[in-house]
Design a protein around this nucleic acid. Sequence first.
DNA 1: TGCGCGATGGTGACCAGGTCACAGACCGGC
DNA 2: GCCGGTCTGTGACCTGGTCACCATCGCGCA
Lengths: 221, 221
Amino acid sequence: MSETLEQSLARAAPDLPPALRAAIAARSRRVRVGDGYRLFGPGDRSENFLIPLSGTVRVEHMGPGGRSVVLYRVAVGESCVMTTSCLLSGADYAAYGYAEGDVEALALPARAFRDLVEQDPAFRSLALGVFSQRIIELVDVIDELLLHRVDLRLAGWLVERGGGEATIGITHQAIAAELGTAREVVSRILKEFERRGWVGLNRGEIRLLDPDALGRFAANR
Amino acid sequence: MSETLEQSLARAAPDLPPALRAAIAARSRRVRVGDGYRLFGPGDRSENFLIPLSGTVRVEHMGPGGRSVVLYRVAVGESCVMTTSCLLSGADYAAYGYAEGDVEALALPARAFRDLVEQDPAFRSLALGVFSQRIIELVDVIDELLLHRVDLRLAGWLVERGGGEATIGITHQAIAAELGTAREVVSRILKEFERRGWVGLNRGEIRLLDPDALGRFAANR
DNA sequence: TGCGCGATGGTGACCAGGTCACAGACCGGC
DNA sequence: GCCGGTCTGTGACCTGGTCACCATCGCGCA
């Protein structure tokens, strides 16, 4: 891959103005990590504005008891603002970022971020848009946690995550982290779904036998 | 009160550069509402960037079942970004804003907000800072909700809210909304605190008899 | 003054979900 | 084929949320 940063960015974020892509590429470095790699976490001081070129970044919060929730995902061409936020507000990180799939990303240093905000109107609206988006997503997470009824949420999550595919490869523990609940709860509910014939269970995988029934069940919320 | 908007803003936000204060004041209108007034809510289309001059604005999220949580408070000189966020990201409101105390505020229309972001570096950093701050606060709320142990959280909340005062005037229902739990739960726990001699209860008020004990209890988290 | 009504608080019964403890199943490497 | 770690299943138990209902208070008003 002898592609320049700018070319990579053009593929990942074709909507950005070319001048902005050039400006970002000029001050970023390329980061490549494998599936599951921890890109950032509490205590790190590597304040970068991350822009995935391939793969996504899962941003999780971990509470004191070790339980965690997925706050949001950073898709290709979007950007993660957690680190930037903490930098700007002076607070410490409250989140971990993990690679999902092999991730290639641009890392724009905090200094360059500030400069671009000053100089480039398109970058400003990009940054503000991303911040807004994250705020909305966080409120959605809060809504989910308040609403609970884990069985309904799990059913909905399965259908959404399945996205037409017949099988989902994931552990119960990982699902628990997605939903902000405990592993045992996920196991119990999945077992119940299996009894009803909605899913088939194997180690590390879930077969969706009746996505429609799951969808209807989830819609009872 | 024949004070100009600019003078009011100078009192509320003395740290802002005078030129920025003038620019904000020039395009804002003054809003005055009484305690408890609903400043915004889902479905409204009055996109304003609110800057309280006196009183604070409580931003609450309400879930489908009618249960609510306080997301954050906007203090004097700060600003609420919920409406702005929704505007920028195209999503619908997920929150209500209520006046706490008699609130006087500047309302800066969305259009003016965008213009100021473009033109004024100080306003840009103000806006980005506020967004960052809110993100951190939302993650804190998520942390609290995950951690639960409502009795510990309630004890901590009482001490913090009391702030040295001997009495807090508030209903159990309102406390439940603060913590994102149910009224009955608050009543039960407060009753237990009363049995232990930590608080005294009267309709609409809570006397803190032993804040130290409450503090120690909360610290067990 | 006393009546009525809405807001507030108290309580018991019950269910959902989280925690703890532990066992069994599976999987890869040696 | 054995052994370790990882993943899953399950029962016992506790906390918290929901529901139903009543008691009490404050206040306006006949």
